[in-house]
Write a protein that binds this DNA or RNA. Structure first.
Length: 274
DNA sequence: CCAATTGTTATTTA
DNA sequence: ATAAATAACAATTG
């Protein structure tokens, strides 16, 4: 489920535990979410440590602990973060739990494409600092996008939008939504876009990211009661999942097919192959 | 039983 | 050699 703003939504949930000590760590050792991570070390170092603060970048979460410990979380396809009461009994797919005195911070991931990382040191770990510059940062320029599209010129634009090294945080539904807003057919080859189309695409990426943070992740300290709670019916989002969905702008039937290896939805009246 | 799934990476193909 | 396409990962749901 989680893309850019959804990841931030989950971070805000766990931020309930900022400032509080971890009194126990419960985890499922043998699960794939810990691939490449020493669970013994993670458990030993985080027990007794205080959760100081956290951040998100693209689809990654970073949690900073006392004594220079860093916890990384990627939610993969089906991961989510929850806050439970101290008496909560872990469910089947609750693979990682930080127990605090007044709450439990739970990482749940049935499909286990997600990941838990751990490292120690004075500076944030490399896997965090090498994430591509955010779409809402100054470095996400139209020139950078144009250059990238040229280099990936023979791939469908839909596939290119999913590449995290240039569009960090964009996932399947955001890619479809951006292309729909920009009125660009997902199967157009990246190198075939006109200068005007590249400009529009660049702008719509920024607009959708801003919109997504506001509606999904909430503003300030406010956290929506549920993911997607405030997403308006006017987004492609609500109409793209199943057959029979209609374009919120034209009212016509949406098309679905696979493009760039993923299920893709577009509005034929707005987005044309040519 | 078959096909699907909002992600990433290793392997295969062009 | 490079880039694009595909398979694989795991679990559940329709």
């Amino acid at each position: 489920m989680p893309e850019l703003a959804e990841v931030e939504f989950f971070r805000k949930r766990w931020s309930a535990g900022h400032g509080a000590k971890v009194i126990a760590v419960r985890l499922h050792d043998d699960k794939k979410v810990f691939r490449g991570t020493s669970t013994a070390l993670l458990k030993r170092k985080l027990t007794g440590a205080r959760l100081l603060d956290s951040a998100t970048s693209a689809k990654q979460l970073l949690f900073r602990f006392s004594s220079s410990h860093w916890l990384g979380v990627h939610l993969g396809m089906s991961g989510e973060l929850r806050v439970e009461t101290p008496g909560y009994a872990p469910a089947k797919h609750d693979h990682f739990v930080l127990v605090q005195r007044t709450r439990q911070l739970v990482f749940n991931d049935p499909r286990m494409f997600g990941r838990v990382l751990f490292s120690s040191g004075p500076k944030p770990p490399a896997w965090w600092t090498r994430i591509a510059p955010a779409i809402l940062s100054k470095k996400f320029t139209v020139e950078a996008v144009a250059g990238f599209l040229k280099r990936r010129g023979r791939a469908p634009i839909k596939a290119v939008l999913l590449m995290q090294e240039r569009f960090p945080g964009i996932g399947n539904w955001m890619a479809d939504d951006v292309l729909w807003r920009a009125a660009i057919h997902p199967k157009r080859l990246a190198g075939s876009l006109t200068t005007a189309e590249v400009r529009t695409l660049h702008r719509e990426c920024q607009k959708l990211c801003r919109l997504a943070f506001d509606t999904i992740a909430g503003q300030g300290r406010y956290l929506p009661p549920d993911l997607n709670h405030h997403i308006p019916q006017s987004w492609l989002f609500w109409h793209r999942w199943e057959d029979g969905g209609r374009c919120p702008r034209t009212g016509q039937l949406l098309r679905r097919a696979t493009a760039g290896g993923r299920t893709t939805c577009w509005s034929p009246a707005r987005q044309r192959l040519r």
